[in-house]
């Protein structure tokens, strides 16, 4: 089975500054679960932007769903983006749309039938505890509610790859567990997940997950516990290389 994501010697710099990502190489297989960790400024969000095709790398090769996205034409990118769900750290909900319309957005963009989209969106909003806030505008929702709405929007299309930046940062532990359950269900259906987080307890709740750690723009693996879940192929961390 081909990789969902493959990075080879990827480097990223903004303008003429120093590289924020250096020689990043890894690959993610279908249906695998990954956490991305690292100190603030280590390059997590930059790596995620490459994963959800918001920018192209300064150097190296990136293959998403078997397509070389570095040399790919702009016109071919939307089809790949429709297969990727994204939870942004700052949610990036559309302020002029209701919660329901925000959730329906990915399926509407994909041209799904309106009736099916609405029913699916309502069920999903109920699942994340926003059944009574469907017509509310994002500005009237709390931080936690906005985060759940952003997650619902990211997963509604049942994407092949889900990229989430601190998806449980603003919710209580109970809701965090519920959202993690949603991610695991999605993972069981075949979605490859990459979740950037500082939350150690969240990582500990998914023992089979691969942990990718960024340090000053370089990527290392930290642990691979459960052999039945295929791990990401990454460079070993410096600590693991030590005798």
């Amino acid at each position: 089975m081909s990789n969902v994501v493959r990075f080879e010697n990827v480097g990223l710099r903004y303008g003429t500054s120093a590289e924020v990502l250096r020689d990043v190489s890894f690959s993610l297989e279908p249906g695998t679960f990954h956490f991305l960790t690292g100190a603030s400024g280590a390059g997590k969000t930059s790596l995620l932007t490459l994963l959800y095709l918001a920018r192209r790398p300064s150097r190296g090769l990136i293959s998403i769903f078997g397509h070389d996205v570095v040399t790919m034409k702009r016109s071919a990118l939307p089809a790949l983006r429709r297969r990727i769900g994204v939870v942004f750290q700052d949610f990036r909900l559309l302020a002029h749309l209701s919660a329901l319309d925000n959730v329906m957005l990915p399926l509407r963009i994909a041209g799904a039938p309106e009736a099916a989209v609405r029913q699916h969106a309502e069920e999903l909003l109920a699942w994340v505890g926003l059944a009574d806030r469907m017509n509310a505008r994002p500005a009237t929702l709390s931080g936690g509610e906005q985060q759940r709405l952003a997650i619902a929007r990211a997963v509604i299309g049942r994407p092949d790859l889900l990229v989430a930046d601190e998806p449980t940062g603003n919710v209580d532990p109970e809701m965090a567990a519920r959202l993690l359950h949603l991610f695991l269900e999605l993972n069981k259906l075949g979605t490859t997940l990459v979740i950037a987080t500082h939350d150690r307890s969240l990582i500990d709740q998914v023992p089979g997950a691969q942990v990718l750690r960024l340090e000053r723009g370089e990527l290392f693996t930290q642990r691979q516990i459960r052999p039945d879940i295929r791990p990401a192929v990454v460079r070993p961390s410096p600590q693991e290389n030590r005798p």
Partner: peptide, 16 residues
Amino acid sequence: RATIEILHLMGAEDSA
């Protein structure tokens, strides 16, 4: 701009 970026990232095409 912010809305258009989101639409792009969700797979909306320029023509749309």
